[in-house]
């Protein structure tokens, strides 16, 4: 299976990465090489094998329902590119 330039543009859009035509073309060749390499894996017989999403085959640990964190807003917002009145600012959101 190989990708085409439109595929690259579609995934770039899904991933919210601005990409020029030129970049898409260059990336396309690399991605096809990589998927060519990945293809080998697909030949393995994995019938009935439980997917392993984690090296630890355990159960999730839970925490008690208690307020343990009083956020320091000043500190938490210190890295914001734009902010006002304790809010993060972004270009107008239209719904």
């Amino acid at each position: 299976m190989s990708l085409c330039k439109e595929d690259v543009q579609r995934i770039a859009h899904l991933a919210r990465l601005a990409i020029t035509d030129d970049e898409a073309r260059r990336t396309l060749a690399q991605l096809n090489d990589i998927f060519g390499m990945i293809e080998r894996m697909r030949a393995v017989d994995t019938e009935g094998i439980e997917p392993m999403s984690h090296p630890l085959d355990g159960a999730q640990r839970l925490r008690a329902d208690a307020v343990t964190d009083i956020p320091d807003r000043e500190r938490n917002l210190a890295n914001a590119p734009a902010r006002q009145d304790g809010l993060f600012l972004v270009p107008r959101v239209i719904e």
């Binding site: 734009a82 006002q84 009145d85 809010l87 993060f88 600012l89 972004v90 270009p91 107008r92 719904e95």
Partner: peptide, 15 residues
């Protein structure tokens, strides 16, 4: 929540 009042021409984000 996105707050749509005008903040210097932008929207505010309250998390």
């Amino acid at each position: 929540k996105s707050l749509h009042e005008d903040y210097s021409g932008m929207s505010g984000i309250d998390l």
